[in-house]
């Protein structure tokens, strides 16, 4: 888990910043942060997310910084559309890898939607990719700018998607929706999150968030029919396009 990665890399000058894009705020995320990392979640999820048994066994409560972003501001700033997505920022505060899937690959089609179980072959593939992503992180920790995984400015820009008019309008809906949610105007809040989803169908954060604002759903996992319907509607397009770990240096 990330805590194990942090324990390994923090002495090499790497800080980990976990940002919970969660309008439910502290109430929604507390259990997952305070508990031993993701221990409360089924082991099937570890396989799904590609965590090797070795890393899964080293779960511990995070000592890295865990922030709560109720208004999804960081998503707006960095073009983050799903969880987990990672961004690498160097010592000078420059982006050296823009938002991309943080070591997770697409398993949604082969997985059992009740148990989250996936076939062994897919689990192997997922673990291999997760390990490769963490190895890339280790390489960057060791070699800094000389690491082939720290991308050139041209390559970073090439991989970024510029914000559209729909994106900034959606972010404004989320800003308003989060305010109304905090004021207890749940139905109005939901309306604005749905508008954000309509404007940015590729933002899975908005989509999941819009489904999870009811008090009895805050802090739980969105895997209802509405979610699967949206996943199915993608056809062959990937849900988690894997991070492109080809080296440029």
């Amino acid at each position: 888990m990330w805590q194990a990665v942090y324990a390994e890399l923090k002495d090499q000058g790497v800080e980990i910043l976990a940002v919970a894009l969660d309008t439910g705020g502290k109430k929604a995320v507390e259990a997952a942060i305070r508990a031993a990392d993701c221990r409360e979640r089924p082991e099937a999820l570890a396989r799904l997310m590609g965590w090797s048994p070795a890393l899964w066994a080293r779960q511990a409560p995070p000592t890295y910084t865990c922030l709560i972003d109720e208004a999804h501001v960081v998503a707006e700033l960095y073009g983050i559309t799903n969880v987990p997505q990672g961004v690498w920022i160097d010592e000078q505060g420059r982006i050296v890898r823009p938002a991309e899937s943080a070591g997770t690959i697409d398993m949604v089609r082969s997985m059992n939607r009740e148990t989250f179980e996936i076939p062994d072959a897919d689990a192997e593939r997922g673990m291999a990719h997760r390990d490769a992503y963490i190895d890339a992180l280790r390489d960057w920790a060791k070699h800094g700018a000389a690491s082939g995984y720290a991308l050139s400015p041209e390559e970073v820009r090439k991989r970024m998607r510029g914000p559209s008019a729909a994106d900034v309008l959606a972010a404004t809906h989320v800003r308003l929706g989060r305010h109304l949610y905090a004021k207890g105007q749940l139905e109005r809040a939901k309306h604005h999150f749905k508008e954000a989803v309509r404007l940015c169908p590729e933002s899975w954060n908005y989509r999941r968030q819009s489904n999870m604002l009811d008090p009895d759903k805050v802090g739980t996992l969105n895997s209802g029919p509405d979610f699967w319907e949206a996943v199915d509607a993608r056809g062959d397009r990937q849900f988690y396009p894997p991070a492109d770990l080809g080296q440029t240096a």
Binding site: V14, E15, L17, P84
Partner: peptide, 19 residues
């Protein structure tokens, strides 16, 4: 916490959500 507090370190930032 501000991102700028971490200037001088390499920052690996990742998104997650309870949902």
């Amino acid at each position: 916490h501000s991102l700028s507090d971490f200037r001088g370190k390499k920052v690996f930032m990742f998104s997650w959500g309870s949902y």
